[in-house]
Simulated assay, not measured.
Amino acid sequence: MTPLRLALVPGEPAGVGPELCVRLVQTARSYGMTAFGDPQTLRAAADALKLPLHLVAPEDDQGRAGELALHPIPNAVDVAFGQPAPANAHAVIDALHTAAAHCLRGDCHGLVTGPVHKAVINDGGIPYTGTTELLAEQARCGVVMMLANPTMRVALATTHLPLREVADAITPASLSATLRTVHAALRTDFGIDQPRIAVLGLNPHAGEAGHLGHEEIAVIEPVLAVLRGEGMSLEGPLPADTAFLPGRLKRYDAVLAMYHDQGLPVLKFSGFEHAVNITLGLPYPRVAVDHGTALDLAGKGTADPSSLIAAAATCARMARARTAIMP
């Protein structure tokens, strides 16, 4: 039996990430957690919140309240709350890469990430489109983005694309790969033996039998037929405007939306504070908060830690489902 240990990356040092990490560790944990970040920033966040923070080496971590193991990755310049510095972009990316490397080696069993500021990272001279893409490139694998809250799980067939590019991006190969990844993750990470997945159509009314678009007939329906033949439980393509009705959601373990704003507004409306962003397909579980850096709230002690708390709890459950580890 291997003790569970999660890697934690606070994200943008000038945002709310560091103080949310401080709040996260105010309760004793049944697993180890190693933060990858700047010690001075974490201590400043704890001082601003007037909360205890005892930074220890990973081997000394006992999971006690107010205690956090740290793999130090110093920032290049001092941090001021709410004022991101592009000079610290390399430390943010280094923290992500180093934490992920620990997960790939098996030193940590899952990765929890706080919010980062894409524009600041690019201003720091690092081409960056998102942490999901960064982790997928490092692990050399295909991934799927899923957002989840206590009400629903919503995966995406496409992510951050202009709407006019979405239809061309949904191909038989990409859709099949996405559904296989979602199905495998529901079994491996969530312990669902026979996952039930609702697949949304691309067009209004799921194309209305070809009168409102042909993607359902030409792409989605043939892929679903092949995967059903392999034993997957797939319903669809479904009209998006009725698929999220509470009575219908009870029949599914996850919903696959064709594009970002088709599925995520419904999920966020149903429980934004407890929503988390999960990367499916990596060799380890990765769960992120579902909010931004909130620079205007940094250092004020008013930022809600619910999403980070939910992310850590979700990551721990996923890691336990993957590995024979101690409770």
Rank of each mutant, 00 (worst) to 15 (best):
K268M: 14
N149E: 04
V226K: 08
I309S: 05
A101Q: 14
V9N: 00
P86L: 14
A148W: 00
Q40E: 15
T181L: 12
P115D: 06
G63V: 14
L202A: 04
R196N: 10
D94S: 14
T302N: 06
L4R: 10
R153Y: 03
E221C: 04
Y252N: 05
L295M: 08
H183S: 15
P10S: 06
R164P: 02
A69P: 05
G110N: 10
E230T: 08
H109T: 00
N75W: 07
H90G: 01
A46K: 04
R187H: 13
K300G: 07
T131R: 00
P3T: 10
Y252V: 06
P74N: 13
E215V: 08
D123N: 07
S233N: 02
T302P: 02
Q138R: 10
A310N: 02
V226L: 10
C103A: 15
G210E: 09
A311W: 10
H102L: 04
P84W: 05
R317D: 14
C315G: 03
V16Q: 07
D94G: 14
R196H: 14
M258F: 11
A275P: 05
M152A: 11
V92R: 00
L8I: 04
T178D: 11
Q194Y: 06
C315N: 04
R164Q: 12
A298E: 07
P127L: 00
E235Y: 12
T171L: 11
T171N: 13
T98Q: 10
F272K: 08
K250G: 12
G124C: 01
I309T: 15
